[in-house]
Design a protein around this nucleic acid. Structure first.
Length: 227
DNA sequence: AATCCCACCAACCGCCACCTC
DNA sequence: CGAGGTGGCGGTTGGTGGGAT
């Protein structure tokens, strides 16, 4: 039985892998570790290279711009992390996935649902519309809420929802874009009413709680709400 | 100071599409 | 066409560090 090492990579292992790939390139992940002098599985080497050692990999906190791109891409693509990563040069699918699960998931109404089916990879041959299964279609299990921006200048919104009476969001120095709450662009609309108020209609996949909206806290959000 | 709790994230696992023979 | 191998992907786990008690 081969002694395969697991767990965190040492600087020596990193150096071995990096030097080997720089010199010989990537030819076969499953055979490469032996030639590179590593007691690792090929998959482990690939992951380490793709996520950390590969030139151009970007580290550090996500910028607000990157966050917006992730949210928008998630709304369009779902949990296709590699496709989302393609929109963020330097960021890896694993990093985006981790960031999403730790920072964004609850704000976008994504539940930890054991019944949630694994999101199958999209074959290179695109699906036709009439080939869509029920799994591809929007879930009927959602709630509909309306957000009304009462005063665009003061960036104050009156959020009326069936899970609490009223919430007031204030923002003094940054733009608030209610579209950021969009769950599904096809079911979301933004319009200006006859009083000049901005109306954002969106669909959320489950009954909301205050915590679903604390994403706004980074905009100095004040809540005045009754749960 | 010690312990507990929780968020974060690197890395592993298993599934599946694609490729080659 | 089917079987087997490989690589890519998403879900999940487990170690770690920092804050709370």
């Amino acid at each position: 039985m081969e002694d395969i090492k697991k767990g965190a990579w040492s600087p020596e292992e990193d150096q071995k892998l990096k030097s080997y790939i720089m010199r010989y390139g990537i030819w076969n992940w499953s055979h490469m570790p032996k030639f590179a002098g590593l007691s690792r599985r090929g998959k482990s080497c690939r992951l380490r290279w793709m996520n950390y050692l590969r030139p151009g990999v970007k580290r550090g906190p996500f910028t607000m711009e990157e966050v917006k791109i992730v949210i928008k891409a998630y709304q369009e693509l779902g949990n296709r992390w590699s496709a989302i990563a393609a929109r963020l040069p330097g960021r890896t699918d694993n990093e985006i996935k981790n960031f999403f699960h730790t920072h964004l998931k609850k704000h976008l109404g994504v539940k930890n649902d054991a019944s949630m089916k694994r999101n199958k990879r999209v074959p290179k041959k695109a699906k036709k519309n009439d080939e869509m299964t029920n799994d591809d279609k929007p879930s009927p299990d959602h709630r509909v809420y309306d957000i009304t921006c009462e005063d665009q200048n003061q960036m104050m919104m009156n959020v009326s929802m069936n899970c609490f009476d009223q919430a007031i969001i204030t923002n003094n120095n940054l733009e608030i874009n209610p579209v950021i709450l969009e769950r599904n662009p096809e079911t979301t609309s933004v319009e200006i009413n006859n009083l000049g108020c901005q109306l954002c209609h969106f669909e959320y996949p489950h009954p909301c709680t205050i915590s679903d909206f604390d994403f706004f806290h980074q905009f100095d959000v004040l809540w005045d709400a009754q749960l």
